[in-house]
């Protein structure tokens, strides 16, 4: 339990990586690291995709990244209709890890293009806690 707090509207409540939520509440963005082979995963994973090891450690990651692509959503699912239009982006972080996240409304739409330097930061809104891409 607990993972339903992840995002602006959570669909999944039960997962082995639910601790991500409490880290975000403490303003930390954490990845998982396989204790067997050292593979780093973000978003976090309970099970290593490389060696199948399920013994993981939580490690902080740096949020600096570059935008890969983005969109501005006008037609939204019911739980999101009050906040249209809003921005979504895909960014590349360190070591080739990628993140799908909302882009802060404060980022100027005119600046949006692949390669734009952004930073991933924890964010709390209402009951939810998540991360979003913001200007550096």
């Amino acid at each position: 339990m607990g993972f339903e707090k992840f995002g602006r509207f959570g669909y999944v409540s039960q997962t082995k990586i639910a601790p991500l939520v409490s880290y975000l509440e403490k303003n930390q963005i954490m990845a998982t690291k396989c204790k067997e082979c050292g593979t780093l995963c973000f978003p976090p994973r309970a099970d290593c995709p490389k060696c199948r090891g399920s013994n993981i450690a939580w490690v902080p990651i740096e949020g600096k990244g570059k935008l890969v692509t983005f969109t501005e959503v006008y037609f939204a699912p019911p739980a999101f209709q009050d906040s249209t239009p809003y921005l979504l982006g895909l960014a590349e972080l360190q070591r080739g890890m990628r993140v799908f996240a909302p882009i802060s409304n404060e980022v100027d739409r005119k600046d949006l293009k692949p390669g734009l330097e952004l930073v991933l930061r924890p964010k709390q809104a209402g009951e939810g806690v998540f991360y979003q891409l913001e200007s550096r």
């Binding site: 993972f3 992840f6 995002g7 602006r8 509207f9 959570g10 669909y11 999944v12 997962t15 978003p43 890969v68 692509t69 983005f70 969109t71 959503v73 037609f75 939204a76 699912p77 019911p78 739980a79 999101f80 906040s83 809003y86 979504l88 895909l90 799908f100 996240a101 909302p102 692949p114 939810g128 998540f130």
Partner: peptide
Amino acid sequence: GRAGDVMWESPFGTSMPAYYAMYANA
């Protein structure tokens, strides 16, 4: 809204067109 990964992407308000729009922008 649940067309994408429901753990990591749908919680941010994705839609089917949003994904293809991201390919279009790229």
